[in-house]
Design a protein around this nucleic acid. Structure first.
Lengths: 355, 355
DNA sequence: TTAATGAGCACCGCTCCGCCC
DNA sequence: TGGGCGGAGCGGTGCTCATTA
């Protein structure tokens, strides 16, 4: 598409891309000044700056990333370490991050994790480090990932998305515990004695926080806290958990850790002859696009993933630019989830309260 | 993590990464020879080559990608243009491609499409071109993407995934028409008079091929071909189409363009008082992990996405290496889908045939 | 005197060229 | 023919030193 290196022939795709020298000539300045403008160095008069910027625009000049990376030993790219992208949450966040970064004219390098062991996470970081990315967004809210992050040498800016317990890094997150509390309160408000929970994988921090939020809400209301069941994100995991819960006639309300598990729970209950929501209410988390069309339409917690991604990128680039960014979780970087109430939740079969 | 640029101090993260000269010295050859070995140039004796390789291994030397990109004006990266990654298919393919590329030690640059118009697709290509990627995998099987690809200047190798009509590029694909035929035949075999189709978005080539496969199968069996309904990939689209189909009492079998639409169809039918599969059979496409847990468990077509991604990457790298790769669709690059029969499909209410 | 800019150059790590043994 | 040697870029960054208003 461009000139073959060195060869005078092969100018197939049009003329050579402009380089810094071309900009300097057009603006009537030295390449030095162009560089100063590009890097926002002080000591450039406003008028000069504007002339250079006009020349850049006219030539449609883009700095050569490879040349800059070569000399600075850092690229402007943003690396993303991401767990299983077939899951709705990580996939949505990755998409949001990718688009945010590209909108800012930077490059994204993705390292997805084939497994969730420490080696896999460490590999991903090593890969991105080898690419000399300028910063990393981590969308891998597992304990193993957290462990690796804590052991990371200083140097490359890192922002964690939803990595609730890694207090030493800037964190951008959805208030998972609040989401869990919203669902649990909703179910209690409907008149249920207590709420059972089908938990996500124990290694996932999000799963843990949802458990915590659910547990705290029950305790605060003076309700019994049943033992959580489950241990995965898939519909199959939910199905297995649902079969267990179906055996207990006291179960009238179930909060599942995400929507696929909720689907599995519903299916298992229905197969066991329990109606949803007439006999048992079920709610999920994530609010996947299909949730309104499950049978019955699923009550779920919605997270604003695009906002989360944008926030993560903005924070990371602040960090890259050398700004002081508070570590850990802070309210400005915590996204509030909301509850979408649909028809999978209803009052319990016999509302003893109001008798 | 590494030495601060230029500064003699700040050697924080350990010693400097080895460069080609270090390898040359250790192997007792010149940097020239190391370069020859690295690039597989001829004219290096076997013994010398082995010595160099040993030195590379001992020092754990990795060529500096930025330096190489600077001089060759091409990076070793693979670009991926991908449509809506919240859809199961594209997300799965992207994941497969990313892992395949990384396994080969190369870098991936993703450009996802915020919209499906020509400008958006052209932007994505321009972005990747600016990054000087060595090749591009396109996972955007829309007509608009195909149009842009056809207008692409020669130069950068491109492989299309599932872009059925772009005959001038190497294509890696799932035999969509065969998948559609499998479902349609399955439904006819069950005794249905004909099969209705809820189509995907008209701009998507995959959707079109599924229509074609369905239509051909019906014609070949001498059945009437009803007008397809629908026009989207979402459960909401399927729901709308299902409401339409529910009004026609002759409808006993529906093939939906993907699983979410199938879910929507099922829901609309059920709300209209039609039982699935007793009154109407419904089948989907994609076989999402949740499909077995829909109510009823959904009959669907499974595509081997990991294989597709691996094939796409292998083909692209052959192309990058200068190999002659046949254009268009060829059997070696066509992945065969399979049918997963579950409980959403059954014989029609009254099997008139066998009376 | 100072702030803004220019001129020139070394350097990042690699590829490729010419020339030599 | 296999290989060494030296050197010129690639397009930036950032340094020193001189020059100008």
């Amino acid at each position: 598409m461009t000139t073959a290196p060195g060869a005078p022939a092969g100018r197939r795709g049009g003329r050579r891309a402009p380089v810094m020298h071309d900009v300097a000539r057009l603006a009537g300045v030295s390449h030095q000044t162009v560089s100063r403008v590009l890097n926002g160095s002080p000591g450039v008069r406003q008028a000069t700056r504007e002339r250079v910027e006009a020349a850049i625009a006219e030539l449609d000049y883009r700095p050569n990333a490879a040349a800059r990376a070569l000399v600075t030993d850092r690229s402007a790219a943003v690396g993303v370490v991401v767990a299983d992208t077939t899951l709705f949450g990580p996939a949505s966040i990755l998409l949001a991050v990718e688009q945010s970064v590209r909108r800012r004219g930077r490059e994204v390098n993705v390292a997805s994790l084939p497994d969730l062991d420490v080696a896999s996470v460490a590999d991903a970081f090593a890969y991105l480090e080898e690419l000399r990315v300028g910063g990393v967004v981590v969308v891998a809210p597992q304990r193993t990932a957290a462990d690796v992050m804590l052991a990371l040498p200083e140097g490359t800016p890192v922002v964690a998305v939803d990595g609730g317990l890694v207090a030493d890094l800037p964190i951008v997150c959805v208030d998972q515990a609040l989401g869990a509390a919203l669902v649990t309160e909703h179910l209690l408000d409907l008149g249920h004695e207590t709420v059972h929970h089908v938990a996500g994988p124990p290694d996932w921090l999000e799963a843990e926080e949802r458990v915590a939020g659910w547990r705290a809400t029950l305790s605060d209301s003076g309700r019994g806290v049943p033992e959580p069941v489950g241990g995965g994100w898939t519909a199959a995991d939910g199905y297995a958990a649902g079969q267990l819960l179906a055996r207990d006639p006291d179960v009238t309300a179930v909060f599942a850790a995400n929507d696929p598990t909720a689907l599995g729970v519903v299916r298992a209950l229905q197969e066991a002859g329990r109606r949803v929501p007439d006999d048992v209410s079920v709610a999920g988390f994530d609010d996947v696009p299909e949730a309104p069309f499950y049978g019955p339409a699923l009550t779920s917690v919605r997270q604003n993933f695009p906002e989360l991604g944008e926030l993560a990128v903005a924070t990371l680039l602040d960090l890259v630019a050398g700004a002081e960014v508070p570590r850990g979780r802070v309210p400005e970087r915590t996204v509030t989830p909301s509850l979408a109430v649909r028809s999978s939740t209803a009052p319990p079969p016999t509302t003893r309260r109001t008798s």
